Amino acid sequence: MSATGADAPAGSAVRTVLVTGAGRGIGEATARRFADAGYLVGAFDLQPCAWAAGDDRVVTGVLDVTDPAAWEAALEQLTARAGGALNVLVNNAGLLYGMPFVDASYEQDSALVDVNVKGVMYGCRAAFPYLEKASSPVVVNLCSASAIYGQAEMAVYSATKFAVRGITEALDLEWGPKGIRVCSVWPLYVGTGMLEGVNTAGMRNMGVRLTEGDVAGEVSDLAEQTRRPPSGLLGRIRGAVGRAVHRPVGAQATAIYLASQVGPGRIIRLANKRLTS
């Protein structure tokens, strides 16, 4: 692995964040945003992130999120510069294919499950001892509005995001008493390279209206919100709403998510069918 920048002084109060899939897209935008906010950023991907070369705010190296040993090495590399603590883990790395289920392959299914599900589980497991040592630690998992109801032409991707939803909710309950917040962001279609060659009915009907910066902003806000609890009655009310486990990104995802919280299942199914077919 490679790293940039010098070690932080012993006892430094530097805050740390590890972002997976940081080579481009949402991961790169998120890592850059945290660096600009003063964090020591671990930007990891299948190759060291070229954009981070020479940036003393960023530690970059190789991380295959499906490899537990690689997780251990990446966490040790980053936290060695910050007293062994990790303040924020952003499980962003992911894969997607969009096509009728029967047109894909066993290999594609396996790759999505390995990266999207195992990558999140392994990251949380490996990061736990480092999060325990940190002040106001938070895990932000990249979920999706496709975890609201199964998406036609994205069946396996949708299934993996339901799994991420379950992991997030379970660990929020388990780790909350330990002071570790676990939450997720739920965007709809985001204009990144992941959607290259994807042309589903859902995309055509709803459009691609989010940017990588939109999602990065929500991830950063969740971390800062955890770090600085709101004050005053109005602030506490807003904070209670904002501290929900799942945060939809954008007007479309927010509307669909809120409707799913109150609408009967058959209505949500019908609405989803109309939007994605």
Rank of each mutant, 00 (worst) to 15 (best):
Gly61Lys: 02
Asn92Ala: 10
Asp45Tyr: 04
Arg33Cys: 04
Trp175Val: 06
Ala127Ile: 03
Thr66Lys: 07
Leu171Ile: 03
Gly25Met: 05
Thr4Ser: 15
Tyr149Lys: 12
Val249Arg: 00
Val219His: 01
Pro100Lys: 13
Met121Cys: 09
Tyr97Arg: 08
Ile148Met: 09
Val208Gly: 05
Arg243Ile: 02
Trp186Tyr: 11
Gly61Asp: 01
Asn272Ala: 12
Val138Pro: 00
Arg204Lys: 14
Gly179Asp: 05
Pro248Val: 06
Asn199Phe: 06
Gly150Asp: 13
Ser231Pro: 03
Val219Met: 06
Thr160His: 03
Val102Tyr: 09
Pro230Arg: 08
Gly54Thr: 05
Cys143Lys: 00
Ala201Ile: 12
Val113Leu: 13
Arg236Asn: 09
Gly27Leu: 01
Cys124Gly: 07
Arg24Val: 05
Asp214Glu: 05
Ile268Arg: 10
Leu195Arg: 03
Arg57Gln: 10
Gly232Cys: 08
Ser260Arg: 11
Phe128Gly: 03
Gly207Arg: 12
Arg243Trp: 02
Thr30Pro: 01
Gly123Asp: 02
Ser277Gly: 14
Val208Asn: 06
Val185Leu: 08
Leu142Gly: 00
Val88Tyr: 02
Ile256Phe: 15
Ala6Tyr: 12
Gly84Phe: 04
Val190Tyr: 00
Gly54Ile: 02
Leu210Ile: 09
Tyr106Asn: 09
Gly207Trp: 09
Asp56Ser: 13
Ala85Cys: 09
Val241Ile: 15
Arg269Asp: 15
Val182Cys: 05
Leu86Ser: 03
Ser184Leu: 05
Lys161Trp: 05
Gln261Ala: 14
Gly25Val: 04
Ala111Glu: 07
Val41His: 00
Tyr157Phe: 11
Asp109His: 06
Thr200Ser: 13
Leu131Cys: 02
Phe162Ser: 08
Met1Thr: 15
Ala170Pro: 07
Ala111Lys: 07
Arg247Phe: 03
Glu72Val: 14
Gly42Thr: 04
Leu18Glu: 00
Ala201Gln: 15
Ala85Pro: 05
Ala13Ser: 15
Val139Asp: 00
Thr276Val: 12
Ser144Gly: 06
Val139Asn: 02
Thr200Glu: 06
Arg243Ala: 14
Cys49Lys: 01
Asn141Tyr: 00
Gln108Pro: 07
Ala74Gly: 05
Glu196Ser: 11
Tyr149Val: 12
Val117Asn: 02
Val208Cys: 09
Arg227Gly: 11
Gln108Cys: 09
Ala85His: 09
Ala80Thr: 15
Gly179Arg: 06
Arg57Thr: 07
Arg165Thr: 14
Asp56Met: 08
Ala240Val: 10
Leu96Tyr: 11
Arg57Val: 04
Lys133Pro: 06
Thr30Cys: 06
Met154Arg: 13
Gly11Gln: 14
Tyr257Leu: 10
Asp56Arg: 13
Leu222Asn: 00
Asp36Cys: 11
Glu218Val: 15
Lys273Gln: 15
Val19Thr: 03
Ala93Leu: 07
Asn87Met: 05
Gly83Pro: 02
Asp103Leu: 13
Val208Gln: 06
Ala82Tyr: 03
Val139Ser: 02
Ser136His: 14
Arg274Ala: 13
Asn116His: 07
Val190Thr: 06
Ala170Leu: 09
